[in-house]
Amino acid sequence: MDETALINSAQQGDLDAFNTIILHYQDSVFNTALRILGDEDQAQDAAQEAFISAFQSIKSFRGGSFKAWIMRTVTNACYDELRRQKRRPTTPLEPETSDGEEIDSPKWMEDKNMTPAQKAEADELEHAIQHCLDALPNEFRTVVVLADIQGMDYSEVATSARVPLGTIKSRLARARLRLRECLRSFEELLPQTFRLDNEKSR
């Protein structure tokens, strides 16, 4: 995929070219929205909004990291969604069994390579991490999601979050420390392979 050519075509209004770009970035964009918002439906909405707004403002892209640019649109969409939530808070409906127990997230059931134990382990891990991410302030969460989950470098994160590099460095350090503290309380819930003490003893 020649990304530059596709971007140029999209800047001329070629929607098909932009859709090719979307197919390349949609997983990253969705995952970023999911980790910032912590809700799959909201993440889908935010990702869709982000792509629409990205197409409408693609002429403003002046080169550099396209991933950082598209991540900026998705973080903006997520912040909009979070502001909306603040104005109109809603209670999500968790799927439950007839006994009132929460049903395991079906996303792990879809993966046929995993044993039920592995699925449960991964599910637990994901729940714990998402809980700790949700506990972070928005700006810390965004930085840690972009740097540690999306694997972006500091300059890309700075572009996406529209904050200076020094601020990224500081926010990331604070976010990691807070996450470490939070995850410590989930130690026994975390699967053996992800126990924090294991890493320490290594």
Partner: peptide, 11 residues
């Protein structure tokens, strides 16, 4: 910090 970082990366 390293453990927090690796857990996030393993997500």
């Amino acid at each position: 910090l390293s453990s927090a970082r690796s857990i996030l990366k393993a997500l």
